[in-house]
């Protein structure tokens, strides 16, 4: 199947007084129709910036897309003017934001906020748009939509607001949905409900989803494929099973190892030592090398290319080079992988 979205060599930088912060440093990925790609990584790894850049929502200045292509249905969004992009935003590509408490306009009725995109993109009359808004509110599971449509955001709870944010994103049946940590600000029971809503809608509309999160439990639940980001680059990308059962990059090992589990017998939860590099002066070799237990000399000198593991599994680590010593993931991660394979991880989803 053809790619709905194809990102090639995307670089995004922010010009600050201290210099150029290279937030995204050459990212490639693609999303097909009906597919969910999860982007995981710790805070500051560039995952949010990547998705914002896709929609042209990076504040410029100080931000800018330095180079690269964002091909959406064959058209390069990176080269489009803001006016052209405005016709795609909300219609073909929509975004679900992280914080439901601040993502809605506090002085505008919820109904009007949902209807806005419909009136703009689908040239609907007010009453038609209202009908569709009621439908959407029902779809995302908000009771009494006739009542709720006339209310303001402050009359909604956090979970209900996030449903409104999702309803806004879904208004025009977007072909691509960018979800920037849509469940991070919600408590666990609501999280599960929201994820179900998103999955149902994806099935119905066959839309592609880019799902940003740092919660691996959520990833296992929703994703078809996973891209692991570190310091502005994708270090490993593959099917969800590849990433969970056959991870190759030491950073992915670290992420999996630092996930709490019910089987773990150790008292202390594993944490990756150190902190992510300063992207004002990104390190020369593998950006993860200083924090990695498996770093080799070359990791500090030369950046690893993407090594092919299988047809859809790639990882950027010198450990995959033919001359590299054979390295197994740490024991805790191996135990985790076994636990995952036996299916007992259902319980420890956050």
């Amino acid at each position: 199947m053809e790619n709905l979205l194809e990102v090639n060599n995307l670089h995004v930088s922010f010009d600050t007084y201290g210099g150029e912060v290279k937030a995204v440093r050459g990212v490639d990925f693609s999303v097909k129709k009906g597919e969910t790609l999860a982007i995981v990584g710790e805070s500051g790894s560039g995952k949010s910036v990547t998705t914002k850049a896709l929609m042209g929502l990076i504040p410029q200045p100080p931000g800018r897309i330095k180079e690269g292509e964002i091909l959406f249905e064959g058209k390069d969004l990176a080269k489009m003017k803001d006016k052209e992009l405005a016709n795609i935003r909300g219609k073909d590509i929509a975004m679900i934001f992280q914080d439901p408490m601040t993502s809605l306009n506090p002085t505008m009725k919820v109904g009007n906020q949902i209807m806005e995109g419909l009136i703009k993109h689908q040239k609907k009359s007010k009453s038609e748009a209202k009908e569709r808004a009621l439908e959407l509110l029902k779809l995302v599971g908000i009771p009494n939509p006739e009542e709720r449509i006339k209310q303001y955001p402050h009359q909604f709870s956090g979970g209900m607001r996030q449903r409104v944010v999702i309803a806004i994103a879904l208004a025009c049946n977007p072909k691509l949905l960018l979800a920037d940590e849509p469940t991070t600000a919600l408590d666990v029971t609501i999280q599960a409900q929201i994820l179900e809503v998103m999955k149902d809608i994806q099935k119905e509309m066959d839309s592609g989803i880019v799902f940003i999160t740092h919660d691996l439990g959520v990833v296992a639940n929703v994703a078809d494929r996973v891209a692991v980001m570190y310091a502005g680059k994708i270090v490993e990308i593959g099917k969800v099973d590849d990433i969970f059962y056959n991870p190759k990059h030491p950073y992915t090992w670290g992420l999996l190892g630092s996930m709490p589990s019910l089987e773990s017998t150790e008292d202390e939860l594993y944490a990756i030592p150190g902190s992510p590099p300063d992207l004002l002066n990104p390190p020369k070799g593998d950006a993860f090398a200083p924090r990695s237990d498996h770093a080799m000399k070359i990791d500090f000198e030369q950046e690893p290319p993407m090594f092919k593991v299988t047809e859809d599994h790639y990882a950027a680590t010198w450990l995959l080079h033919e001359h590299a010593p054979h390295t197994e993931p740490p024991k805790s991660v191996q135990a985790r992988m076994k636990g995952m394979a036996s299916g007992s991880s259902e319980g420890d989803r956050k």
């Binding site: 929609m55 929502l57 006016k83 405005a86 016709n87 795609i88 935003r89 909300g90 219609k91 929509a94 975004m95 934001f97 914080d99 601040t102 993502s103 809605l104 306009n105 506090p106 906020q113 806005e116 995109g117 703009k120 993109h121 944010v165 806004i168 994103a169 208004a171």
Partner: peptide, 13 residues
């Protein structure tokens, strides 16, 4: 603020 980004993401000019 965030809700302005939401508005822009809707395609509001």
């Amino acid at each position: 603020s965030d809700f302005i980004t939401t508005a822009r993401a809707k395609g509001v000019n």
